[in-house]
Design a protein around this nucleic acid. Structure first.
Lengths: 223, 223
DNA sequence: CGAAACAATCAACCGTGCATGCTTTTTTCC
DNA sequence: GGAAAAAAGCATGCACGGTTGATTGTTTCG
């Protein structure tokens, strides 16, 4: 469902940029160019931030001319609007990839899920998202797009966390605790921005997963 | 100690901007102008972000000319370097102010401390800091300054949280849990950037303060 | 051949640091 | 103590570099 929505938005953006009625690039090389530009846009965001990700910088990164970029995305705004949609796809792929190797159950599972969630939030994709997130506060056209992305990723992250943790949200407090876990992961992503925070982070992940496990699976009162 | 350090840095910045050997502005009106500029810089950061906080925008906000700003801060970099130091002072004043009305002890206390920490991280000062934090990743001159500020505020926040919570850090896991609480508060600050997140937040604060209380004050095994 | 895709160039605008000018306050000199 | 000079503080304007969207030119594909 989310993947389908993303593709529809992507096609709409393609229509806008070419002014045509067809469904995106016609040539394979054009599709490849477009992909390269979008990937470069996200990479530049992560490395250079919003202000540093000028169209020229993105083009240099993608190895294409400004004219080529302009063919696909008439304005900087359109470029990053498409990049937002691209980011949603990349995010989902990233989480799916990481979820593959989770242990079966118990405290090891809880630890691994927390570790994974934190890893997602300390990676380059979150970094790019963070830059967009912060920049969107003063970019009216971008704001709505980014707010929608944030909302969607947030809901999806929550859904996946509940699923991976096998958490029962009908138990009072579980829902909020899972949410707190994600907010903490975001905070850790922030803390990793200017310097490597991994040592401190490891201790926090270990402890949080213990606390989380205790909340999700309280000791049996009958035992 | 931190206040003294802040003042020394402030004086050093003043020396730099005037090229003199004296200790900052000589006239009261000059001190007032400087203060206005710095306050405006922080307010603009919170509202417009880094890219939007041009010297012209800050001056308009402060109600001074660009020449006046330039007298105090020769470059944009110097302006925001001083703003960083100013931010540290404002942050401390803010926390002190909020700490005044904390209840005495128990779960109410824990809740109030968590609520306060989260409130600090969802206010305009944190918002300004966040913009600086993110922008600093691609501003070499600013990076070091902001990293130092982040480090200092982080340590101070931790120290105060431990103090206000009357937490015993020799108990295994308490230190990490307090740190995680702060990281969670930062994540909640982030979540409040593009839209009002207060409803979700209230639930998380309530629930987490319960969990935190249970961690800090586990049930007496002898009872 | 025309459309699509890409490349290169242009003009307008903005932000910055620098320079010059004006006003207010402090210091120096008699 | 008062006038003049100097310093401090503030105001205005300029030149430059970078970014952007628009425009024109070239290459590739169907």
């Amino acid at each position: 469902m989310d993947v389908v929505t993303g593709a529809a938005e992507d096609a709409a953006a393609a229509n806008r940029s070419t002014g045509g009625t067809d469904r995106g690039p016609k040539q394979d090389r054009s599709r490849a160019t477009r992909q390269r530009i979008l990937s470069a846009a996200l990479a530049c965001l992560a490395e250079h931030g919003w202000a540093g990700s000028t169209v020229a910088v993105v083009c240099a990164r993608a190895g294409v001319s400004r004219g080529a970029a302009q063919h696909h995305f008439g304005t900087r705004e359109e470029l990053f609007t498409a990049a937002v949609a691209h980011m949603a796809e990349e995010w989902q792929a990233s989480v799916r990839e990481r979820a593959r190797a989770l242990p079966g159950r118990g405290r090891d599972r809880t630890y691994a899920v927390v570790d994974m969630l934190v890893a997602v939030h300390t990676g380059p994709l979150f970094r790019a998202a963070l830059h967009l997130w912060v920049a969107a506060t003063d970019e009216p056209e971008l704001r709505e797009r980014v707010a929608a992305l944030e909302s969607r990723i947030g809901r999806e992250a929550h859904r996946l966390a509940v699923e991976f943790l096998a958490a029962d949200e009908s138990v009072p407090g579980v829902r909020e605790t899972v949410q707190a876990t994600l907010d903490m992961a975001r905070g850790l992503g922030l803390a990793n921005l200017l310097s490597d925070d991994s040592a401190r982070r490891a201790g926090i992940v270990r402890q949080w997963s213990r606390t989380l496990d205790a909340v999700l699976r309280p000791p049996d009162p009958a035992a």
